[in-house]
């Protein structure tokens, strides 16, 4: 589901200037240039706004965004690995969780 600029701005509680600057800086994805926003863009814009409120400066924002995105990438990968492990029979699962176990 995508939304228009006005809707995005009011949901993210930011102004056009911030939006433009953030897209320009690459903090918001290039797909935002076509003025089609996703729910995740609202959430990301709010995060950026929160980070600014906390006192993170313009240099710090992309560093944090990048790390947060990496963290989510890792979380997803870990989640996949865990589901894969959970799908295994109990004996194999315990081999993963307790490699020293004789089973």
């Amino acid at each position: 589901m995508s939304m228009e600029t006005r809707e995005f701005l009011s949901a993210a509680r930011i102004d056009v200037g911030m939006m433009t600057a953030w897209i320009e800086a690459g903090w918001l994805g290039p797909h935002c240039k076509s003025e089609e926003f996703l729910d995740i863009d609202v959430a990301r814009a709010r995060l950026i706004r929160d980070l600014t409120d906390i006192g993170v400066n313009d240099e710090g924002i992309p560093v944090i965004l990048n790390l947060v995105d990496q963290l989510h990438g890792l979380r997803r990968a870990l989640h996949e690995v865990l589901s894969a492990v959970r799908a295994q029979p109990e004996t194999r699962r315990s081999r993963v969780s307790r490699p020293d176990s004789p089973y």
Binding site: H31, L38, A43, N66, R76
Partner: peptide, 23 residues
């Protein structure tokens, strides 16, 4: 309830900001 970035970022499939740079 505010929906935080993580609610979407963890969703995976529809996350345009997803990156595998961490691994």
């Amino acid at each position: 309830r505010q929906r935080y970035y993580r609610d979407f970022a963890d969703a995976g499939a529809s996350n345009p900001y997803a990156t595998d740079a961490g691994f």
